[in-house]
Every structure is written in C-alpha cells, then in structure tokens.
C-alpha cells in the first residue's frame, strides 16, 4: 500500500451471505484526491464492500477508516462521506427540490441556495419543481449525484453510477464525475464492471474476484508492469506500414483495421517502433493504446 494519505482504508473486511463468501479479508487504500475505480465481474463483491462502507450491511470481520475516523465509531465514520449506491431512487411523489430538502435536512445542509446551486451544477435546475416520477433514469442518477454532494463530502462513493443509462447518459455522468472531482475537490471511489469507463476517468484502481482483492494501485503503475499492450497506429500509407511491421520483430498480432493497424507490442518498445517507422518515411498520425485495462483484467482472470 502507498504511504500517501488515505481517504478510505479497509482492513481485512469479510462478509458471508449463507454459503457465499462475498468479501474475503479485503484490504485497500484510496488515496486522497484520486478517482478510484473498484473493478470486478458481476457478483465479485463490489457492491457488498460499498454497502459495508455505506452502513447498509455489517461486515463479519475487519474495519475501515474514512479520513482517519474508524468504523468502530459507528455512524460518525460517514461524517465526510456521501454515497450513491446502485441506481438512484427517490420519493417519487415529491419534486427534485423537495427530495433534496428532505435529504439535506438529515445533515443540516438544506439551505435553498446550496440546493439550487447543486441542481444547477447537475443540469436539473429548470426541472427542480417537477416530481421525480417524471424523470428519466439519467436525470435520477444526476439527482443522485446532486444529493450526494449536498453535505459537502470529502469522499464520494458511487456504486455502478452509469448502470441502466443509455450511451449519452453514461457520457454525461462520466463528465459530471470528472467535473465534481475537479471543481469540488472530492475523492471519488466508484465501482464498475465497465472497464472502458474506468480507464477513461480513474487515476487508481483495485480489482476484486470472488470476494478477494486481486490487485490495486495507480493506473500508471499497473500499466507499467504490463508486458504487451495493444496499440492502434494511424498511418499515411498502410501498405508500406504493414510491410514494415510484418518484417519488424517489435510487433506481433498485426491486424489491418478500417482506418488503422492494430498491433501487439511491448510497452517499452513503442518509442523505438515510432523512430524506426519515421526513419523509413512512414508518416504516423497517431499511436493509441487500446483496451489496456481489459487486457490487464483478463490476464488476472486467467491467473485466477
């Protein structure tokens, strides 16, 4: 584990549901200021861990701290944390504003201007007086984020925040998460099984399989340790590029795509490849690494 200050630290958390060991001695550390992706396949234990942290279920063993407040201190551990667990559900017969008011009152954050500011931030100000039952799932998720931000949390825990959303809704929520992290200075811990989503927004990750933590660290450290990566090359002359790549010992698994060429290459060898191709007058417009996280994830799955 890193020595940087932690927003959330879990120590040996375990939880069993009848015959299923949902969490098995899970320890992890979420650095302050990070957007931390908690990954795993369905049923791996992501939601269970989040529900333990959120106080919805009790762990059988272990404890956790949030900004140095221990879970042994009861509900006070959640003083600086807000959560959005699973899909956002509200009192459907009340308006967005009334829902925010009710939830804000729980922590003494029910000032009208603060509620309106957050509704505005999440693009819901114009609909604040409408009943939640008229909202789309995407709007409810945004309202979920708004209510979670109401107590000015230092740690925001989101469980599969884009579940059930269409691509546009997913894109909006991702943008809001980045905006919140940047503008509100909040550490974000989010669970997801969407690797692409996590790769796009997270600075740190942890992976869980069958209730056990398989890996954790910053994105850059994890990718540094990877041997082969998938790369897409956008080149001017794909024929000569293909000829060069087939002869080159640096690349393998060469596949021509519609507007690019996909190759497998060692991470350390990418600069050498670019130099060589440029020397042979093959103009490269872009080099992009693809599905790094997926590759890492699958390699871990294979090991399991």
């Amino acid at each position: 584990m890193s020595n940087s200050p932690a927003a959330l630290e879990c120590h040996g958390l375990s939880k069993r549901f009848k015959t299923i060991q949902a969490l098995d001695n899970v320890s992890l550390q979420v650095p302050v200021g990070s957007i931390f992706g908690f990954l795993g396949p369905n049923g791996a234990g992501k939601s269970t861990l989040i529900r333990v942290i959120a106080g919805l279920i009790k762990s059988d063993a272990g404890h956790f701290t949030i900004f140095d407040k221990s879970s042994h201190s009861g509900h006070k551990v959640r003083q600086h944390m807000s959560t959005l667990v699973d899909r956002a559900d509200f009192y459907k017969n009340l308006s967005a504003f009334q829902n925010m008011k009710i939830l804000g009152r729980l922590t003494g954050h029910d000032q009208e201007d603060q509620i309106n500011r957050l509704l505005d931030l999440l693009g819901l100000y114009e609909r604040r007086k409408d009943k939640v039952k008229t909202f789309s799932q995407g709007m409810k998720q945004r309202l979920g984020l708004a209510q979670a931000l109401l107590p000015n949390p230092k740690l925001l825990v989101l469980d599969e925040p884009t579940t059930g959303l269409d691509p546009q809704g997913m894109h909006e929520i991702r943008d809001f998460i980045l905006k919140i992290a940047r503008e509100q200075n909040v550490t974000i811990f989010l669970s997801s099984h969407l690797l692409h989503e996590v790769e796009l927004i997270c600075s740190d990750i942890a992976l869980i399989f069958n209730g056990k933590l398989a890996a954790q660290g910053s994105m850059s450290t994890i990718f540094q340790d990877m041997e082969d990566v998938s790369v897409e090359l956008e080149v001017e002359n794909s024929e000569s590029a293909l000829k060069y790549l087939e002869k080159s010992k640096l690349a393998s698994d060469i596949k021509p795509l519609a507007n690019a060429i996909s190759i497998e290459i060692q991470h350390q060898a990418i600069p050498e490849l670019i130099r060589d191709m440029s020397a042979k007058n093959i103009n490269i417009f872009s080099v992009s690494q693809r599905n790094r996280l997926e590759k890492f994830f699958l390699s871990l799955m294979d090991k399991k």
């Binding site: 959120a54 509900h75 959640r78 944390m81 807000s82 959560t83 699973d86 009192y91 459907k92």
Partner: peptide
Amino acid sequence: ANGTFRIYATRPISR
C-alpha cells in the same frame, strides 16, 4: 421497496 433507504440510511445518522 422504493429503494429510498439506500440513500437515507447511508447518511451519518444512527439507526
């Protein structure tokens, strides 16, 4: 049933 407890019960308030 409505799922609102997920939000309500995660606030720093005792049960």
